[in-house]
Amino acid sequence: MSIIRQLVLIFAVLAIGFGAYWASHTKESVQEAPEIMEKVRLAVPKGVITAPVLLAQSRGFFAEAGLDVAWEDEYSSGKTAFEAMLRGEADVSVVATTPVVANGFNRDDFFIFCTFTTSYEGVKVIARQDLGVKTASDLKGKTVGLVPGTISQLFLDSLLAYNRILPQEVNTQPIKPQNAADLLKSGEIQAVSIWEPHAYTALKDNPGRAVKVPSSSVYRISICTASTKDFAAKSPNVLKKIVLALKRTTGFMNDQPAQAQKELGELINMDQEPLTLFWKETSFRLSLDQVLLMTMENEAAWMVENRYRDDRLIPDFTRFVYCAPLEEIEPQAVTIVRQKG
């Protein structure tokens, strides 16, 4: 073999070896590249019905999805968290459908992009049986506490309508959620329409006197994540990362309920017994389904019929549901019927 051919062979071997080393080193560097952390301000009411979001934060799932979350959980309801988002104080909020519907009559700069908790028992009417209230029919002439403009008010009205009781046949009193148990205990109100964990507290603090009024599954609550359309346009990956973290969290909650209940109990200072009951009454899964739309339409009709809104035209609520983030992460979870074209 000539010297030239030997040199060519040597250079070829060296080139292949260097190329392999460079490719391996580059691949390793790419794999080790840190996740780009995207900032998001999240407004969430701290309670059992927002469990997936609370656990996603405490277990580090948001951070592992690439989110740097500015966390605010001192809101008393989804309504106040949602309104904070609309004021520009947060980018994403956790909310039930009622505040979304109420604001949908006069603005359309926001939408729901994921539902993660649904239940027919998430809101309850707790009543003082020793003051004569055991069933819905007993509510006539009694004073019932509620949180105006929330699922508390809607649930009570739905229960009354289901039992053919006119709203004016019941006296209502606006309350703050955290005061429900004390007001019921004092007798200032004889019943209260409230969500968990306040419903459980009202029962626990009135042993032998308080009962749950049968509701016949009159209303499904849906707890959702919502954002402004402007934020979604500027930070589309943030919404997808939130969905990814919630998918991981709901999987954990369903696969390891005892551990999830233990961790949640520590976060919201709640005993194991009510958490076990709540798990049985609640579905933790990601969705955007037709029932969600039907619920919002029914809520809008309720608001118009009861003159909580002057508008007579029901908004098109498909404009308030953004399917893209969930559709990309878990397409089978999106079952909303949409018009083509």
Rank of each mutant, 00 (worst) to 15 (best):
A84V: 09
R87A: 12
R87Y: 09
E89V: 04
A90Y: 03
D91L: 11
D91W: 09
D91K: 09
V94W: 03
V95R: 00
A96I: 11
A96P: 03
T98N: 14
P99T: 08
P99W: 07
V101G: 12
A102F: 08
A102K: 14
N103I: 00
N106V: 11
N106H: 15
R107M: 10
R107Q: 15
D108I: 04
F110S: 09
F110I: 03
F111L: 06
C114L: 12
C114K: 03
C114Q: 11
F116C: 07
T118A: 05
S119Y: 09
E121N: 13
K124M: 12
K124G: 00
V125M: 08
V125P: 06
V125R: 02
I126H: 02
R128V: 02
D130C: 10
D130K: 01
L139Q: 03
G141M: 09
T143C: 05
V144D: 12
V144P: 01
L146F: 14
V147P: 03
T150F: 02
L154H: 13
F155R: 09
F155Q: 06
L156F: 01
D157S: 13
D157L: 15
S158Y: 14
R164G: 01
R164T: 11
R164E: 15
T172D: 00
P174G: 02
I175D: 08
P177R: 11
